[in-house]
């Protein structure tokens, strides 16, 4: 039995090596190993460290009524609840967070084939293991984990991954929710030293249609530390068992973007149509370009002449 298996392994490995050597498509896809520094543009702009998104800025997110209602009672003080201080972000954070990625393969001992790709963790983000060996996703009764459960396949040179069993989390850093029934389909495309991530988030609980995000990363020689550190709960001012939130209609930042930038509230509160160019025409007559920026600090105004124009 063993010689036959060994022979098969040798044939598979040799075939793969020959195909790569001759420039033919590798059945195992592309090499993704390395440290990938975040290039924070495209959809990452609103999530950058520092300013980040405004508390009530849901533009472009296909929220349903429940998702909008959830967002409008959410207080960011919740992250200071003792039960949440050491909580980690859900896998959707690779699409909305500011961090880079460190990626490495796990290989099968005999054939050298890749059984999994691992995306390393961050201080507040758990590593994601992308299983490439065809294993099924867990039962609907299984616990959901902070890393979710992810499988992957190569479609030509694009690694396509599918994540289920995620904990509830956020799809924007101001707390717009993703539920524990959300799934994420991600496509990792490598073009030389640039890695592009396109994530599609489906959430039957809070979204009316899929939400797409893209991020880019550049291969770097400086290694990123993928460690997820132990965490200690300290007092951040929210006593145990209290849940900071706003009652409906009482969010203090409800009309912040309206006052700062003159953007109609129907745009601020999101919804599928707010992601489409046609929506700009719909609100064109409601948009009042402010005479001056009143944002504090002034650096968040974006500089002279940068008010949005719908023309």
């Amino acid at each position: 039995m063993w010689p036959r298996i060994s022979a098969a392994i040798v044939v598979v490995a040799a075939t793969s090596a020959l195909m790569v050597a001759q420039g033919l498509p590798n059945p195992e896809g592309l090499e993704l190993s390395g440290s990938w520094a975040a290039r924070n543009f495209t959809d990452a702009i609103g999530n950058m460290p520092g300013g980040g998104p405004r508390p009530v800025d849901y533009m472009g997110i296909p929220l349903n009524d429940a998702g909008r209602a959830w967002s409008l009672i959410y207080s960011q003080s919740q992250i200071s609840m003792p039960e949440r201080i050491c909580d980690y972000y859900a896998p959707t954070y690779i699409a909305i967070g500011p961090m880079g990625l460190r990626i490495w393969p796990e290989s099968e001992l005999l054939t050298g084939s890749t059984t999994a790709w691992v995306i390393g963790g961050w201080a507040d983000f758990v590593p994601i293991t992308i299983w490439m060996d065809g294993r099924p996703h867990p039962s609907k009764y299984a616990a959901h984990e902070k890393s979710g459960f992810t499988t992957g396949v190569w479609e030509d040179d694009v690694l396509v991954t599918y994540t289920t069993h995620m904990e509830a989390g956020a799809i924007r850093r101001n707390g717009v929710p993703s539920s524990d029934e959300a799934t994420m389909t991600a496509r990792f495309s490598r073009h030389d030293d640039i890695l592009t991530l396109t994530a599609r988030i489906d959430d039957p609980i809070y979204l009316t249609e899929p939400y797409y995000l893209t991020r880019s990363f550049a291969l770097t020689r400086a290694p990123l530390n993928p460690a997820t550190h132990p965490c200690t709960v300290t007092n951040e001012g929210v006593e145990a068992e209290r849940v900071p939130h706003y009652n409906p209609g009482e969010h203090p930042f409800l009309d912040e973007l309206v006052k700062l930038y003159g953007i109609p509230q129907e745009a601020v509160l999101g919804g599928a149509e707010t992601a489409l160019p046609e929506f700009r025409k719909k609100i064109k007559d409601k948009y009042v370009r402010p005479s001056r920026c009143v944002s504090v600090p002034a650096s968040t105004c974006g500089g002279p002449g940068t008010y949005p124009s719908l023309d």
Binding site: Y88, E106, E145, K146, S147, A227
Partner: peptide, 13 residues
């Protein structure tokens, strides 16, 4: 806590 290819590495919690 761990690093890739180190003996203490883990891939999750």
């Amino acid at each position: 806590v761990g690093l890739p290819n180190g003996s203490s590495t883990t891939t999750g919690l």
